[in-house]
Amino acid sequence: MSTKRLAIAGIIAAALTLTACTGTGTPNPTGSAGETPTPTPSATAITGEAPADENEAIDQAEATIDLLLATQAEIGAAGGANPERYEAVATGKALREFQDDATRIAEGPILNEDGESIEGQSTVEGSLIFEPATGYGQEYEGIANGLVIVPGCLDGSQRKITTADGKPAMQNPNPRNEVEFHVIYNAETKTWLVNDRISLGTTC
């Protein structure tokens, strides 16, 4: 029974976190804000000098979130392969969470629509969309605006998981949820990284 509860928690987390496309709050080179873009290759991180002001920091943070979600979509489409790619765009709690999700896609268990816990590799189609509402910077390790907090709506309704038995995975009944991404600037590597993603406990 406890295994089933863990599996339920896993699929709900997966429904919220696995997959992605670029958000609408950042310039998108692959398409307009009104269409669903194809995720672009995400082998490199968002790098550069420390932000000159809060607006620049917010732009870099939103671009980093988009890059993380694009990487997530690619890893999901590849059946959870190469989760180490997240290290270029995430750190801390976010890195562990996204890599754990990749492991569930690659190996299971994930609940199917009948509530059965299924081991084995799942397939993923579609993507999760983040719609930033605003953003604000704070000092981080001596860098002005080195931490950017970006609240917004995370929409998992367009992402579909099929478990290894060929059945649709159990879906979160509330696919649109308010979250808050925390993005930090690493002064040593001059890299922006998503450090955390917090569920605010409300739908959107």
Rank of each mutant, 00 (worst) to 15 (best):
T38S: 06
A45R: 02
P27W: 15
T17V: 10
L6S: 10
E49G: 11
E35T: 10
A33G: 10
P29H: 09
L16D: 02
A9K: 00
G48L: 08
I11M: 06
E35C: 09
T40M: 04
A13Q: 08
P51N: 14
L16S: 10
T3H: 10
P51Q: 04
G10L: 09
T24I: 06
A14R: 07
T3G: 14
P37K: 08
T38V: 08
G23T: 01
P27C: 08
E49M: 14
G23W: 05
I8N: 11
R5E: 11
P39A: 00
G34Y: 05
A50I: 00
A7G: 03
G48S: 13
A20E: 05
T38A: 09
A52G: 15
E49P: 06
D53P: 06
T36R: 03
G25E: 06
L6D: 15
A14W: 09
R5F: 01
C21P: 00
T44S: 15
T44Y: 13
A9M: 07
L6C: 15
T30C: 07
A33S: 00
P39F: 04
L6Y: 08
T26D: 01
T47Q: 02
A7E: 00
A15S: 12
L16Y: 14
L18N: 13
R5G: 05
I46P: 00
R5K: 11
A20K: 01
L18K: 13
A45P: 11
N28C: 10
P29R: 10
P51W: 00
A13P: 11
T44D: 12
S42V: 13
K4V: 12
L18A: 13
C21Q: 04
A52F: 14
G48D: 00
T47N: 03
T47V: 13
K4L: 12
I11R: 00
T36W: 03
G25L: 00
G25P: 02
I11F: 07
L18F: 06
P41N: 09
A14P: 03
T24H: 08
P27G: 10
I8Y: 04
T38H: 03
A9S: 02
G10S: 09
T30P: 02
G31F: 14
G25Y: 00
I12T: 07
S32K: 07
T3A: 08
A20R: 12
E49V: 13
P37G: 08
L6K: 09
A13M: 04
R5Y: 15
A14H: 12
T36K: 10
D53A: 12
G48P: 09
T47W: 01
I11D: 02
E49F: 05
G10W: 04
N28T: 13
T3V: 15
L16N: 12
P39W: 09
K4F: 07
E35H: 03
T22Y: 05
K4Q: 13
T36Y: 12
T40V: 13
A15T: 10
I12A: 09
L18T: 11
T17I: 15
P41T: 08
P41H: 15
P39R: 01
A52D: 06
G10Q: 14
P41I: 06
G10P: 03
T22D: 06
T36I: 11
T19V: 03
G34V: 03
P39N: 02
D53I: 12
S32Y: 05
P29W: 14
I11N: 02
A52M: 12
K4I: 15
G31P: 14
I12P: 00
